[in-house]
Amino acid sequence: MIHLDNVSYTFKKGGGVTNVNLDINESEFVFMIGPTGSGKTTMLRLIYMDILPQVGNIVVNKFTSSGMKPKKLPKLRQKIGMVFQNYLLMNDRDLFENVALPLHVLGFPKRQITELVEKSLDEFGLSNKVNHYPHELSGGEQQRACVARAMIKDPDILLADEPTGNLDPVTSFELIKIFEKINKAGTTILMASHNYNLIKGRGHRIIEIQNGSVRS
């Protein structure tokens, strides 16, 4: 599902990843741990091809990084759900509109969008916040909304970049449980975190990244 072959990327001001080889299989749940600045976000950006490797090759869902054209990127990303530490919800629209957005991008009919969004918000315990704007939601609710937005299009892969970074321990554990539920339904998950205590002993593969190199 995700294959990184000897991938390197160095930023102009330093930092990045070096000689990364990684395989993540379909329906796998992988935690990526490492301290801040170790290269976790760079890895995720490489996978959703926000940046392309300077050396090596990446294959995600049959999309190859070598020769990747900007025109093809939307197709790749339509099959990837993304969750961020700072949520990246759109502050100028309410929860319903935020969650519905990926479906509009995919061209779903209006009636189906309403049905799917209502179902999704119910699933994530946000049905009573439909008309709330992001700033009217708690951190946990915002993160759940972010997951709901990522999952509404039924992606093959879910990438999460420090999703618990702004959450308290209880809400963080709840979010991990949500991810596990999503993974059980067949979605491949790669979650970056610097909090080892949160992920240890859950029976999922853990890869460690330090100074831009992967140590499994």
């Binding site: 959703y48 926000d50 900007p70 025109k71 990127l73 939307p74 197709k75 790749l76 990303r77 339509q78 099959k79 990837i80 993304m82 990246l88 919800l89 759109m90 100028d92 957005l101 990926p102 991008v105 995919l106 937005r149 299009k153």
Partner: peptide, 15 residues
């Protein structure tokens, strides 16, 4: 940020 968010969820440039 709105433009970035749009692109991250798979919106095309014209969208």
């Amino acid at each position: 940020n709105l433009i970035v968010s749009f692109q991250l969820i798979g919106a095309t440039r014209s969208f």
